[in-house]
């Protein structure tokens, strides 16, 4: 039995790791609302997250392959969005011969600080094909308003 991978593989690069640590520490001193990369105090597994702001809402996407709705817990307290969950082992991996093991099981937590002005009652979320998509609408008073000025 022979399995060969032909796509190029990223070797662990300790210099890059060091640089990313430096970046994370630097970003702590910047007064950004959103973390530049994975939160330094989050648990070791951080699923990738996208956050997009548009005039009406914030859109958050998160990659959660192999997880069901019951495994995921999304909370908004004050202005912090927390995506928590546990990736459960499907129970098929005992006493087998492994050629490759890259996927990961266990619990994770992502915290994303949000600006104030989120309508926390109207947050919607859906999980499809291993992608979690959250829509966080802004409160009316925060939305940019266009005031038309009449010119006489």
């Amino acid at each position: 039995m022979e399995l060969t991978k032909s796509s190029p593989r990223k070797a662990p690069d300790s210099w890059n790791n060091l640089m990313s640590l430096q970046q994370e520490i630097n970003s702590l001193f910047e007064n950004d609302f959103f973390p530049a990369s994975d939160g330094l105090f989050d648990r070791n597994y951080s699923p990738a997250v996208d956050v997009v702001e548009n005039p009406d809402e914030y859109l958050v996407s998160c990659e959660l392959p192999g997880m069901a709705e019951a495994d995921i817990d999304v909370q908004v307290t004050d202005n912090v969005l927390t995506i928590k969950g546990e990736k459960k082992n499907d129970g098929t991996d005992t006493g087998k011969r492994w050629y490759k093991r890259e996927t990961w099981y266990g619990s994770f937590q992502r915290t994303i600080p949000l600006p104030s002005g989120i309508e926390s009652d109207k947050i919607r979320g859906e999980l499809e094909n291993g992608m979690l998509r959250l829509t966080l609408p802004k409160r009316e008073e925060v939305k940019p308003k266009q005031i038309s000025v009449k010119v006489k």
Binding site: M1, L3, S6, S7, F34, D38, D50, V52, P55, S61
Partner: peptide
């Protein structure tokens, strides 16, 4: 991947937008 149609300002961008592509060589077994 289903194309992401989010419009607006990106505040965090960690998800690789590309499609998946994997190639393996399999033998006679």
């Amino acid at each position: 991947r289903i194309k992401d149609t989010k419009k607006g300002d990106w505040l965090v961008h960690e998800i690789h937008p590309g499609d998946f592509h994997m190639e393996y060589t399999i033998d006679k077994t």
